[in-house]
Amino acid sequence: MDFFRENMALLLPIVILELVLIAVALRDLVPRPAEQVTGGNKLVWGLVIVFVTTLGPLAYLAFGRRQEG
């Protein structure tokens, strides 16, 4: 895929966005007790956040968190 090498400058913002979302999602997930996570499994969500591009962190932030309080 020569396209990616040629267009690194264009793809970089997407990569940065991706990394920011992963960072935000993991920073929320890690200190959170397992019972406040949908489904109760933090590891599964961690994998989803890291390996499902963009939609993984977004899905976690939208649906992965059970409101506390």
């Binding site: 793809l11 997407i14 979302l21 999602a25 963009t54 977004l58």
Partner: peptide
């Protein structure tokens, strides 16, 4: 504070960047 600010804007920004590419 609940990081909802990342969800819709993040997704929309992603599409904004991706669509032209």
């Amino acid at each position: 504070r609940t990081s909802r600010i990342y969800v819709i804007p993040g997704l929309f920004l992603f599409f904004g960047l991706l669509s032209p590419i």
